[in-house]
């Protein structure tokens, strides 16, 4: 299938989903659906570096939070524009601020991408394990800075007040839901494009054997940096609408460990070698958690995620997609 056709189909599915939810007319569906979509973006983004290149990023929560706090920052600037900008600049700045949310998402992507580039440049020359440890460290360093940065709320947190109504979409949550759908389409298309391109081949050689990759002419460091930037940028973009979704952000919610766990567990459970894996994993685990949060406690559902992760890495290393493939192969043989 060609990429435009793929995007068209995704868009059709997204539109169908939106109208189905609107028809039911329950806001909760949009709220729950938003979270699942957000996990699809995070899992797909994680997989571009983790699944394709084999570099484990434990810092998904960090990149997500970069997006969250980029929005908080830009929003706060918009709120306090009179105090922040000298008088003669005020008129032009008021034309720009407050920034529309889609622009904030893009800025968040750029910021997260740059931080990914910086960190990758520092650590991607080393063994993969060191990169993994560095990503753990990054999250804590970032959280410490945010906790101590009072402009974006510090440890107290910050309020971001969404407008009640938006044109065309009505409720603001509908608008957020559509934005997240667009991000999902963007993430899945990017992942699929990479998979089928020369870049995807290069990523796979890095995952399989870096020395052999270099000897075959693959510029491994540059490719790893590309993966880190794309992956980080998508995670940042996934985090950018979050303040508007939740209304009040504090470091503990933006840097929540469950983002890191889920964005690893979902691809691992779904399957890491293609874009379908993270999608399947995120849909399954994401929905499961939404249901479980209502019916049982959220601690229990995180426990389930953790146990599933351990179970799958031991028993089914190629994830659900791998299991299905094996079944199909067996059936075609008999």
């Amino acid at each position: 299938m060609r990429t435009p056709a793929f995007i068209l189909i995704l868009t059709a599915v997204a539109a169908a989903l939106y109208f189905a939810f609107s028809y039911v007319g329950n806001d909760y569906l949009f709220f729950a659906g938003y979270t699942v979509l957000q996990y699809i973006v995070l899992a797909t983004a994680w997989n571009i570096l983790g699944g394709y290149c084999g570099y484990v990023n434990f810092g998904s929560a960090g990149f997500f939070a970069i997006g969250v706090y980029t929005t908080v920052f830009l929003y706060t600037v918009g709120q306090q524009i009179e105090d922040l900008v000298p008088e003669f600049m005020l008129a032009p700045m008021q034309l720009i601020f407050p920034l529309p949310l889609p622009v904030m998402i893009m800025v968040a992507g750029v910021v997260a991408g740059f931080i990914g580039l910086g960190m990758g440049y520092l650590t991607l020359r080393l063994r993969g394990v060191f990169f993994a440890i560095a990503t753990l460290a990054l999250t804590v360093v970032l959280e410490t800075f945010i906790v101590n940065w009072s402009f974006v709320g510090g440890s107290r947190g910050a309020y971001v007040i969404p407008p009640n109504e938006v044109p065309i979409f009505g409720h603001f949550i509908n608008f957020l839901f559509v934005l997240m759908l667009v991000l999902v389409i963007l993430a899945l298309t990017t992942a699929r494009l990479i998979e089928r391109s020369k870049l995807g081949v290069g990523f796979a050689t890095i995952r399989d054997d870096e020395l052999a990759a270099e000897a075959s002419g693959v510029p491994t460091l540059r490719l790893k940096l590309v993966a880190t930037v794309v992956s980080g940028a998508l995670m940042g973009m996934a985090g950018a609408p979050f303040p508007f979704y939740i209304g009040y952000v504090e470091p503990a919610s933006a840097f929540n460990l469950s983002y890191a766990v889920n964005s690893i567990a979902m691809p691992m459970i779904g399957g890491t070698t293609s874009w379908i894996g993270p999608l399947v994993g995120a849909l399954l685990l994401g929905t499961l958690q939404q249901v479980a949060t209502v019916t049982i406690s959220s601690a229990v559902n995180l426990l389930i995620v953790g146990l599933l992760l351990i179970f799958f890495v031991i028993i089914a290393p190629r994830g659900i997609v791998g299991l299905v493939q094996d079944q199909l192969r067996k059936r075609s043989k008999t």
Partner: peptide
């Protein structure tokens, strides 16, 4: 170009895909 003492193939790829890598990247 070099070959390795202990063979280091790209394990997730077929034989033909292995040979394609240097064609693509070199």
């Amino acid at each position: 170009a070099r070959s390795f003492q202990l063979p280091r193939p790209f394990r997730s790829m077929t034989v033909a895909e292995n040979v394609r890598v240097p064609l693509l990247y070199t």
